[in-house]
Simulated assay, not measured.
Amino acid sequence: MNPLLEYTINAHGGLEAWKNFEKITARLVTGGALWEMKQQPGILEDIYVTSETKKQTTSHYPFINPEWKTSFTPGRIAIENTAGEIIEELRNPRDSFSGYTAETPWSTLQLAYFAGYAMWTYLNAPFTFANPGYEVTELEPWEENKETFRRLKVTFPPEVASHGKEQVFYIDTEGLIRRHDYSVDISGGSTAAHYLSDYIEVQGIKIATKRKVYVRLEDNTPLLPGPLLVSIDLKEISLQ
């Protein structure tokens, strides 16, 4: 295993501890300009999410209707009721974003697809990077706000849905992820600098409870002052 990845995984609780869990659940309180931009305001404002740890599935609930939830896998997104009946579904959802720009609105199912893969990526990092198919390389360090971060470039396998193929994670001196850079393929390749903070320990696993996402400029700095694209506060976190 890449030494920096091993250091990071151990700092977050260790791979052996993570393997004990099948699911992670949290209450999300979200904000930011993205949801209005995509013409889907309020839907994810206060919602619960469950992601599996051993396969890429995520569900948000209640979704729009108190009796509805989402069902995400890389090849399918659906809205279902509590009885498991399909309200609406879309196969091969990523294809539906072809030609989209950062300004293109999303449908409700497209929002659910984005939220599904994004939260699965966030909640499972860095542990999934030890799985077969991921390629990991350490980049040169990065200095920001008088701190020096080691950087991990992660190339995702094609079967995993995420923002983009290559993403970069910034690791602090304690081994915790403090920043996550990516380009959002389904939003015209729009760039993001995603900051993580307020870590807590849940059942032996370190989890960031606050996330803030800004536009990332060509010089790799965040656009500040600038719009806060997304904010995510995690509460009521549990592992099963």
Rank of each mutant, 00 (worst) to 15 (best):
W106G: 03
T173R: 10
G116W: 04
R151D: 02
S197I: 01
N131P: 00
N131H: 12
W120E: 04
G164L: 00
L176G: 04
T104A: 11
E143I: 03
T155W: 00
G188I: 02
G175H: 01
S98Y: 12
S107L: 04
N145V: 02
E144I: 02
G133P: 08
E138G: 12
Y134A: 06
F114G: 11
W106H: 11
Y134S: 04
A115T: 09
F97A: 10
F129D: 08
V168T: 14
P132R: 11
D172I: 03
S197E: 15
A112I: 07
Y113A: 11
D185A: 06
A130M: 12
T121V: 10
Y195I: 08
R178F: 01
F97H: 11
I200D: 05
F156C: 05
D198Q: 15
N124I: 00
F114N: 15
T108Y: 03
F129I: 05
Y113K: 02
K165E: 15
G188E: 08
E138F: 12
P141W: 10
L139N: 15
T173I: 09
A193H: 14
W120T: 12
I177G: 06
F97M: 03
H163M: 07
G188K: 05
A192W: 10
P132L: 06
S183Y: 11
E166M: 04
A161D: 14
F127R: 04
D172C: 02
E166T: 01
D198V: 07
Y100F: 15
T148P: 00
E174S: 15
L111I: 01
V184H: 03
L176W: 05
F149A: 05
A161G: 12
S190Y: 12
N145G: 03
A118D: 13
F129V: 03
H194F: 10
V154K: 07
E140W: 03
R150G: 01
E135M: 04
P157D: 07
G175Y: 09
K146I: 07
E135P: 01
D185I: 00
Y134D: 10
